[in-house]
């Protein structure tokens, strides 16, 4: 698991931790049932306060991504594929919406946009 904190970022630190742990879970870098570092250990390693770390873990727990086992620590929950798919669709929709908005502003036609999509798909080897 990789977490990099920026103190100069406008995003609050607990939010940064949350997002990065989430990414690790989505990308399967953190596998189901795997134990996360303890709150205090992570606080020490990242040189941040215990409360900040606790907040990130609590948020992740509330979102159902991790769960705490009393006296043992935090573990990655089994992946909810429905949820992940839902979230992915959401992101795709909003990205497309942005692309269309920009295209409209620059008077780029729908056909042109489609061509761009196909080109990128080819480049990214997305078939």
């Amino acid at each position: 698991m990789k977490i990099i904190i920026s103190n100069r970022s406008a995003t609050p630190i607990y939010e940064q931790i949350k997002e990065q742990i989430k990414e690790s879970i989505y990308s399967n870098e953190l596998k189901e049932g795997e134990m996360l570092p303890s709150i205090r250990q992570l606080a020490k390693d990242l040189k941040i306060s215990v409360i900040t770390t606790t907040r990130a873990y609590n948020d992740l727990e509330q979102e159902g991504l991790i769960s705490s086992v009393q006296g043992k620590g935090f573990f990655v929950e089994p992946k909810n594929h429905e949820l992940i798919r839902e979230k992915a669709l959401c992101e795709i929709e909003s990205s497309f919406a942005t692309a269309i908005k920009v295209a409209k502003m620059a008077l780029i036609s729908k056909d042109e946009l489609q061509i761009i999509f196909n080109t990128i798909a080819k480049e990214e080897e997305y078939e």
């Binding site: 607990y14 306060s49 409360i51 900040t52």
Partner: peptide, 22 residues
Amino acid sequence: EKIADYITFIINGKIVFTGQKD
């Protein structure tokens, strides 16, 4: 700034804030 969980802030002999740093 990084390490503290809580902050108590005193000015002129009076506490003006005590609570979570964040």
